[in-house]
Amino acid sequence: MLDVSDDVRAEIGDEEADLLLRGETAPGSYDCTSCRTPGDSEKEATSTVLFVGEETAVLAFAHAKCIPSQVVPVAEAQLQGAVASITADASPVPPLAAPEVSGGQAVLGITSGLVLIKGDLYPALVVEPTAAITRPGTTGPDDEFLQLLIEQGFMPVSNTDEVPSVLSGWSVLLAMGQLHAVLQPGPAGGSPVAWWQAHQALPVTEGWRTAVNRSQTVLVFAAPVGSIGAQAREDLLREALDKAAANGLLVGAAMPLAGAAAGS
């Protein structure tokens, strides 16, 4: 019941992929690299997830419902530090070339926190650029960050006591218990691509992980530069979100975890 994606097969080679699929090197029981709870590749659908650093690659396993089989680029230092925690469900593979990193993208700051909405705690991400975002191909002074997101399907948020609607095709990639990327639909219906990707995986709290494992959904809010700022506590983050919403400077969407079925 193991899935090896084409991308993973291309990296580890046909021989290793076939050994996995025949069960000769399959893990049997494992700790899911996404939700960190036990799994069994002989009894439930399981994904192979290849973490790739500059010099090291580690093959890990996850519930298919948590994350699809894929290649996840991570910083070499972070990968080396994580090896000890996933040795029970990971096996080393030969060194690989460093993944290419696209340039020219706006720098987006991201903060994780729990947001209380009508008595329930929701795992949330708050996105704020480090500078004004102009429309590609233009040089004007106007910040069009929110308008660009609205054109992608984000909705204006005027009341933070309402859960944003699900944004189809978008998802949040959580692996090794940390945040790696926010994914958007690929061109022409292809595989999802990273809208935001961490240079080094972003740690999240145990409470945040617990909430997201329960809901399989993350609320993603976005605001223009200077609207939220760095907030040391979740109550201050909520106050900043409320203020941005009141000023018409907040958009939001609900996104499933990568590999989880999106709600309607």
Rank of each mutant, 00 (worst) to 15 (best):
P68E: 07
A82Y: 09
Q80L: 14
K65C: 01
G81C: 06
A64M: 04
S69E: 01
A60L: 08
A75Y: 10
V72H: 08
A62G: 07
P68R: 11
K65T: 02
A60Q: 08
A64D: 06
A64R: 12
E76F: 10
F61N: 04
Q80K: 13
A62E: 00
L79N: 04
V74E: 15
S69K: 02
L79F: 06
I67C: 06
A62I: 01
A57C: 13
L59Q: 14
V72Y: 11
V72N: 09
Q80N: 08
A57D: 12
H63P: 01
V72I: 15
A62S: 15
P68Q: 08
V83Q: 15
P73G: 08
A77Q: 09
A57H: 12
I67A: 02
A57G: 14
E76Q: 14
V58R: 15
F61P: 02
K65H: 05
H63A: 03
Q70L: 06
K65W: 03
Q80V: 07
G81K: 13
Q78P: 00
V58W: 09
I67M: 11
V74C: 09
L79H: 04
A84K: 14
P73Q: 11
V72P: 06
V74H: 06
A57T: 06
V58A: 14
I67N: 07
A84V: 14
I67D: 05
F61Y: 15
P68I: 01
Q70G: 00
V83H: 11
L79D: 04
A57E: 13
L59F: 09
A75F: 12
S69L: 02
A75S: 11
A77W: 04
P68Y: 04
A62W: 00
E76G: 05
Q78F: 09
C66N: 05
V71C: 03
K65A: 12
I67H: 12
Q70D: 08
V72K: 09
A82G: 05
P68G: 03
G81H: 07
L59D: 11
V58C: 12
A84C: 07
A75E: 14
V83C: 10
A57Y: 13
V58L: 15
Q70N: 03
K65R: 09
V71R: 03
G81A: 13
